[in-house]
Design a binder for these strands. Structure first.
Lengths: 157, 157
DNA sequence: ATAGATGCAAACTCTTTGCAGGTCG
DNA sequence: CGACCTGCAAAGAGTTTGCATCTAT
């Protein structure tokens, strides 16, 4: 899964592709669950039982800084995404799962916004909220109260 | 600033408009800086020196649950917004200020997405990233590294 | 060999909660 | 009066950091 591109890019910056690092990248790239650091930690430990949570955090942060992963924040903390291409997200308010959506294409949107505001628009991203197909069928209830830091039970993790 | 509507809505739920509560709502509504809880706390304390941070958190959470405020998460924590109407946000990557943007109107976008995915789309919001006019003029540098939890020095607060 | 990376534990920040006492209606 | 609310302090969760040790190149 790990391409030579990763190794080369890292080496160019004097960074190494260590075993924990490679496995962490593997884990994030192998899921579309937009995992938290804790999730990645659990998965990595299956293959490398002595890994520490600190190493997971350090590497997630570094890999994101190098552009190999995307980071995003929500009310429950940071999440990571192995899909670094342009795409949007849909968050199900019933099961809290995050789904990838094809990016909305809008030629000229950034340019128009720049013209109107004088701001330099470099990136944009759209978040959708609602209820996914599975929760619709099972009549999953929307959680109207905000997701607290601790009471979240994200499924599939 | 505080309308009777707030008082009435609260009363309908058996809630009171206490002094801390009113001032907290005032403070958030009086700024467009998308303040953190700590910012609100500092401001409220000017008018009510004995207020506690816990009270600020409890009330921000409650006022948001009742729909008087909007909440949003970013990598530095929760932020609150007195503007509850539909609008988008622009985050300046140089000064980290968050600006309001007119909401992008896209008739049929939600419907199309629903049709394609089978998801029930209830809300959506777009975040822009770039460099604001002021930072462009002053050649403010983009912070490419992610904003850490503690090292943030958001201006204007 | 040696700069960089790891594991462990402790520190830090942000946010929430338990509780005794205060307050609004 | 009685439910609601507050301040204080302490607890919790997520994330970061210092340091001795290890390891990739």
């Amino acid at each position: 899964m790990i391409t030579n591109k990763v190794i080369d890019t890292l080496r160019d910056r004097g960074l190494r592709l260590t075993r924990p690092r490679r496995i962490i990248l593997d884990v994030v790239r192998a899921t579309d669950a937009h995992p938290t650091a804790a999730f990645v930690y659990r998965r990595v430990r299956r293959r490398l039982p002595r890994v520490s949570l600190a190493t997971v955090y350090r590497n997630l942060r570094m890999l994101a800084a190098e552009g190999f992963l995307a980071e995003r924040a929500d009310e429950a903390g940071m999440r990571f995404d192995g899909n670094t291409g342009p795409h949007d997200h849909f968050t199900c308010l019933a099961c809290r799962r995050i789904y990838d959506m094809p990016a909305r294409v809008e030629p000229g949107a950034r340019r128009r916004l720049s013209a109107r505001t004088g701001f330099e628009v470099l990136d944009h991203r759209t978040e959708y909220y609602g209820r996914c197909a599975a929760c619709r069928r099972s009549r999953g209830r929307l959680s109207l109260t905000r997701q607290r830091r601790s009471n979240g039970k994200p499924q599939g993790q």
